[in-house]
Simulated scan of single mutants.
Amino acid sequence: MPDEKGYFGEYGGQVIPPDLVAIMNDINRAYQEISKTPSFKDELNDLYTHYVGRPSPIFYAKRLTEKLGGAKIFLKREDLNHTGAHKINHCLGEALLARHMGKTKVIAETGAGQHGVALATACALVGIDCEIHMGEVDIEKERPNVTKMKILGCTLVPVSRGTRTLKDAVDSAFEEYLKDPVNFIYAIGSVVGPHPFPMMVRDFQSIIGKEARAQFLEEQGRLPDVITACVGGGSNAIGLFTAFLDDELVDIVGVEPAGRGLETGEHAATMSKGVKGALHGFECYNLQDQSGEPLPVYSIASGLDYPGVGPQHCLLKDLGRAKYVAIDDEECIDAFMTLSRVEGIIPALESAHAVAYAMKIAKKMSSNETILVNLSGRGDKDAYFIADKLGL
Rank of each mutant, 00 (worst) to 15 (best):
A120G: 09
L125N: 07
A122N: 05
A61K: 04
I73N: 03
N89K: 14
K76H: 08
I132M: 06
K72T: 09
L80S: 05
T83Q: 12
H82Y: 13
E131V: 07
G70Q: 09
G93L: 15
I58H: 00
S56G: 02
F74V: 10
I88T: 12
E78H: 11
G69T: 07
I73E: 01
C91L: 14
K87Q: 13
T110R: 11
T110K: 07
C130T: 05
F59Q: 00
I128C: 09
A71L: 12
F74I: 09
E131R: 11
G127F: 03
A118E: 08
A71C: 11
A118D: 06
A85L: 13
I73D: 02
K62I: 07
A98N: 12
R54C: 09
K62R: 12
I58C: 00
E131G: 02
L64Q: 03
A122H: 05
I73H: 03
L68K: 09
A85M: 10
A124N: 04
A108M: 14
E131F: 01
F59N: 00
A112H: 02
K67E: 13
I128S: 10
D79W: 01
A61N: 06
L119H: 05
T83V: 15
P55M: 06
H82T: 14
N89P: 12
T121N: 08
S56H: 01
G84I: 10
D129V: 04
L68W: 02
K62P: 03
T83H: 07
L97N: 12
T121W: 06
S56K: 00
C91W: 06
D129F: 02
E66R: 12
G111K: 01
R63D: 14
I128E: 10
Q114H: 11
H86A: 15
A118Y: 04
L80T: 12
H86G: 11
V117R: 02
I88K: 07
P57Y: 00
K87T: 10
A112F: 04
